[in-house]
Amino acid sequence: MTKVTLTVNGKAVSREVEQRTLLVQLLRDDPASGGLGLTGTHVGCDTSQCGACTVHVDGMAVKSCTMLAVEAEGAAVTTIEGMANADGSLSPLQQAFQDHHGLQCGFCTPGMVMTAAALLAENPTPSESAVRYYLEGNICRCTGYHGIVKAIMAASGQDMPAMAAE
């Protein structure tokens, strides 16, 4: 076991973990078994493809299923639980997902929101193709990405020409 100290959603935390504990396990595991109980981050695959586990580590999107918890020593981690406004209301990006039907079953959604937030931080007004390109590591099986792409475009303050034609 190793002690790992990091900041999660602005709060300093310290836990004893096995070396083989993945960051996503540390985040999700029940507090009774040494985790943080932040179950908003999901695991959808085991080959680092689906992106349901995406969180931000020091501001960068990372697949938390493909990073050891011990590698997050000293890092600032943000999860979906840390994305709402301070008063608990939806952030503009989250609100755009609701407004544009960017989710159905909700399972890929936390990862989508985290990836979208990383994109908008890098590129505040991405083109539709830039949005689609950036979502390459996030699989959604429900929406056909239609509402997700619309939501991210809307959150960036852009109208999509194709949207008017629908």
Binding site: T54, V62, K63, T66, M67, L119, Y134, G137
Partner: peptide, 9 residues
């Protein structure tokens, strides 16, 4: 290479 999250690691 890969996707944005993979490229960050």
């Amino acid at each position: 290479i890969g996707d944005p999250a993979v490229r960050n690691r």
